[in-house]
């Protein structure tokens, strides 16, 4: 698996898209920091960008890489390699190279700004950890979709739909259901609802860490009680880990049954 990972990783590192992605974050970080001059505000703006953009890029890259490396995959399948190591290697190659672009692209301007002397270092690290989780989750989901659809256009369509659902539509449905059932106690339901969407979960996690939960009113207080504690933090990270684990398991399962 490590050999496949190595080849996929270097293949992606040579592609100009990784640099575009890296340059985008670099620019974003520089602009936010040096034109804003307020570190915690910059972190909040970054959060809003990361929460939406990282899943989108993870999804698109995952699907694109799978379809583009079809020839490479077929070549590998005839070699004495396990199927699971071929696909996991490729998946990790995508996820790690995207995470590298994210961490380096945002990390460099922040370090240049003097992050290590600032109190925002924990907020910033949480932001990066969540960003890495989202990259791993969405590229795994994208690989799943691509594995299940031979047709490129269909695969792309479903992947984008999946992103749209989790990033936007889910929130709308969630909010509507909260309004619809507002006469009932909804604390637990909304907590669970948040857990079931990795994007919502990441957003809540960061917002509460930034101590602006007062903005969220009563629900904010409930959330703070849960996510603010170390128990809540552990449960949230567990939920994010499950969000990585399940799609990865399905990649192994699905790839073992597929014909090429």
């Amino acid at each position: 698996m490590l050999k496949i990972l190595k080849y996929s990783f270097f293949d992606l590192m040579r592609s100009s898209w990784s640099y575009v992605y890296f340059a985008f974050y670099l620019l974003l970080g520089i602009v936010l920091l040096f034109l804003n001059n307020d570190l915690s505000k910059a972190v909040i703006t970054l959060m809003n960008v990361i929460i939406v953009l990282v899943p989108l890029i993870g999804t698109i890259f995952g699907v694109m890489y799978y379809y583009n490396s079809k020839e490479f995959t077929e070549l590998l399948l005839a070699q004495p390699l396990k199927r699971s190591s071929i696909f996991l290697g490729q998946y990790l190659g995508v996820a790690i190279s995207l995470s590298m672009s994210l961490i380096l692209g945002l990390g460099l301007p922040f370090i240049a700004y003097g992050l290590f002397k600032s109190s925002a270092i924990w907020d910033f690290s949480l932001l990066l950890i969540v960003g890495v989780f989202l990259t791993f989750i969405f590229s795994a989901l994208a690989f799943n979709i691509a594995l299940s659809h031979e047709n490129k256009i269909k695969g792309f369509g479903y992947a984008i739909l999946m992103w749209l659902f989790l990033a936007i539509i889910y929130d709308g449905l969630f909010l509507m259901s909260l309004i619809l059932f507002e006469d009932y106690p909804l604390d637990k339901v909304s907590l669970i609802g948040t857990m079931l969407n990795p994007i919502d979960l990441s957003r809540t996690l960061i917002l509460l860490k930034l101590d602006i939960s007062a903005l969220l009113g009563y629900t904010g207080a409930v959330f703070k009680q849960f996510f603010g504690t170390s128990f809540g933090l552990i449960v949230s990270f567990l939920a994010l880990t499950i969000w990585v684990g399940l799609p990865v398991l399905r990649i192994i399962f699905k790839s073992n049954k597929k014909d090429f």
Binding site: D11, S69, E71, L75, A78, P80
Partner: peptide, 14 residues
Amino acid sequence: RHKIDYLPQIANFP
């Protein structure tokens, strides 16, 4: 598959 050399029908390479 260590014991098999395979020449695929259509040479699709990266």
